[in-house]
Simulated assay, not measured.
Amino acid sequence: MGKELTVREAGERRVVAEITGMMAAPSMLVDGLGHDAAFVDLGRGDDELLVLNTDRSGLNAAYGLGLAGPECVGDFGVSHAVSDIVVAGGIPRAVTVALLLPVESTLGFVRGVMQGAADAARRYGAEIVAGDTKQNPKFALIATALGTVSREKRIRRSGARPGDALVVTGFLGSMLLGLIACKRALPLGDRAQRIVKRAIIEQRPPFTLGRAIAEAGIPHAGTDISDGLPGAIHAICDASDCGAVVDERRIPLHPELDELILASGLSSLQLGTAGGDWQFLYAVPPEHLSLLQQLAASQDARITIIGSITEDRQIAIRHLDGAWHRLERIEHDSFADDGNGIGHFSRVETSSSLRGAALERRHFEALWNRIF
């Protein structure tokens, strides 16, 4: 018998596949495993489903850089867990928090973390209802978010259909740009400084817009972009048994950060791959795009069509130079990187290219022109 792979050697997707492959989905689990959150039918005979998600987080970048106190650690941990509830169409109701604490942690630090967690939960319309504390060599916060969703308005990763537009909320790359500006001590104007500082400190999902999108029943599928745009696109396409075409020029970067983007030397795809901005990706049928744009405008929110779902299983991206390549599934892997994504950010920043195999330009140009 050969030596078994370690989880670092296998990678996070393989670990998850091993776990889910040995589990039989219970009858109460609607749509099975593999979505941003679990949909559970409690058998009460009504249309409402329970929606659940558990996430682990650590000391985030804002705290490590001294940009905010321990409150931001608790805020991030709860926001991380709630993000998956919201993109799944759910209404957050309750949160549990478990703290894994080194023995040298101060009571002031613990109070700050929990204050941030409680404030975040209330911001999303929920309350912290239970938790646990345990000693651990390294700090971690494990949050479980519970919500409700009507059966017909739940949003899964599966369900995308050929012809659906791929739509991104907000801007991508701002958090990584902020880390680069801090690390390299790059000079920033007041406006750019405020934008990147907020992106580092307030790693929160587009809660109000996400709830409005779900309530209007707009998307066929959705997922958050916490681990990077390529991973999110692959997650929807894999679950929906379809492909996609994407234009790198359409990846939404903040227009006030143009000088910082130029100074970083990073491409739009690199910045979109970083993750950390906690936006959402939706597959939206063309007939719902007008309503989506109206909802976003009413909230002064940004949405961007970056591509389309295709019947062909290939996932292709047109780069800034017009060349078409396969979009590789590059994403944060908690076993390959450190637990908080810093290793992933560094790898994205130092990668000279994220291009996959070259694809036949004429075919995908024709396909793109037919769609758009």
Rank of each mutant, 00 (worst) to 15 (best):
F76M: 07
F345K: 05
A17D: 15
S308N: 14
L177G: 06
A192S: 15
R204Q: 11
K183I: 05
G276T: 01
P205M: 02
W368G: 05
V113F: 02
D75E: 15
D31G: 14
D312H: 09
L52Y: 04
E18F: 10
C237G: 08
I85S: 05
A160Q: 00
E215K: 15
S105T: 14
G66A: 05
L260E: 01
S290Q: 13
H319D: 08
F139D: 11
L5W: 09
R122N: 07
L179R: 12
S346Q: 14
S346T: 14
R198Y: 04
R194N: 12
R302T: 13
G90T: 08
G222D: 10
L176G: 02
E12R: 14
V284M: 01
F280G: 09
V149E: 00
E259I: 05
H363W: 10
E248N: 03
E18D: 14
G341E: 01
N60G: 14
P70Q: 01
R56S: 15
K183D: 15
L177A: 04
Q135P: 12
E365A: 06
L188D: 05
L292E: 04
H344Q: 02
F372P: 04
S240T: 04
G356R: 03
V51D: 03
A165H: 12
A38G: 11
D321G: 06
I142L: 10
S226A: 15
L99D: 11
A358H: 09
S268V: 07
A94N: 10
P255M: 00
G163Y: 04
H325C: 03
L179I: 10
G45Y: 00
I180T: 06
Q193S: 15
S290T: 15
G265K: 06
Q193Y: 05
A232R: 10
R313V: 12
K153Q: 09
I306Y: 02
I303L: 06
D46K: 00
A199H: 04
G178V: 11
N136S: 15
G272K: 01
D312P: 11
L59D: 02
E9G: 06
D119K: 13
